[in-house]
Amino acid sequence: MALRLVTRRILCVGGDTSIASRSKSYWEKVKNSKAVTWSRSLLSDYKEACREMVVGIWERPIKASLYMTILGGALTCFSSKPDYSSFEAALLERANQLGLLSSWIRNATSDSHVQSLLKLRNEGRLLHVNLGLISLIYFTDHSPDTALYEAQCSSVAKLWREFPRCVMDVGFVGRWWILDSKMKNYDINEDEFLHLPVHMKVSSPPTVQVVESNEQLHKESWLPLKLDAEEK
């Protein structure tokens, strides 16, 4: 019985030793593999690059601040550039603003620009392109779904040098700049003032004396009337 126990212990110790040696050799192979070696060298390169970046920032803070400002501005522009859905929402909002005004008050420039955009949108000819920092809205001669020969043949397609003429709006930092500029003074019909004399077309801000006189007249208008004896 005792001999059997001793033999079993010897075999168990030998088995544990063989398992430990096999696991050790396996981990040695993993450590010396190409993937682990490549990962170790990559981490070393990143570590060295980060160290050089910190040293460069410490030695040239003004240059580093300039680069960080440019990078931060580029990231801000990239994250805040509008998309086509925002252009549609802005266009419909401007159309509603113009629709609430009478044709006698509506600005002709604003109205014609918005109506042309709505016409192109309804025809499916307004397209959007993302250029990273900015977005462009442009029109084409045909809708992308059109099956005409002129719309599908690349030989008769519009040249790229004519593309700037087709740009309708530029989206940058969350705004559509051309649409906003066209909607400036959208509730002022400038055609009403075409037949006025020259001196009436130009208006200057009132002086301080005129403002004070108008305020005094406004205050006096609220005072009770004083009647003379004859008037009574």
Rank of each mutant, 00 (worst) to 15 (best):
Y67W: 11
D111L: 00
E123Q: 11
L43D: 08
L75W: 10
E123M: 03
S181M: 15
I137Y: 03
F163Q: 01
D145E: 13
R121Q: 04
D111K: 01
D111T: 01
C153G: 04
E88Y: 05
V114P: 00
S135G: 12
G171C: 04
I137H: 01
S65T: 05
L133Q: 07
I62D: 10
I70Y: 11
L100W: 11
K158Y: 13
V129S: 12
I57F: 06
V167K: 07
K158F: 14
S85R: 14
L75T: 06
E123A: 11
S103R: 14
N130T: 13
I134H: 08
D141P: 09
C77K: 10
V170D: 00
I178E: 00
A49T: 07
C153Q: 15
G99N: 08
D83K: 14
S103W: 08
S79L: 05
A64G: 02
S143G: 05
W104H: 05
G174S: 14
W160D: 02
H128N: 09
F172Y: 11
I57W: 11
R165L: 09
Y46G: 03
A64F: 08
W177T: 00
K119A: 03
L148N: 04
K119V: 01
A74Y: 13
L127W: 10
G132Q: 07
K47T: 15
L100Y: 09
S181F: 14
P82M: 06
F172Q: 03
D45I: 02
A64Y: 09
F172V: 03
L117P: 00
S86P: 04
A157Y: 06
L131R: 14
L131E: 08
C77P: 02
L92S: 05
L133S: 09
L101Q: 12
E88W: 03
E52M: 10
F78M: 03
C166L: 02
L131N: 09
L43H: 06
D111F: 01
D169H: 05
S143N: 11
L98K: 01
A64H: 10
I57M: 08
F139G: 02
F172A: 02
C77F: 08
V55C: 02
F163N: 02
S103N: 11
Y149I: 11
C77H: 12
R161Q: 14
G132I: 05
L92E: 04
L133W: 10
V114I: 01
E52N: 14
I57Y: 06
T146C: 15
T146V: 10
F87A: 04
F139V: 01
L133E: 03
W160V: 04
R94D: 01
R106G: 03
E123N: 07
N107E: 03
C50W: 07
M183R: 04
Y149L: 11
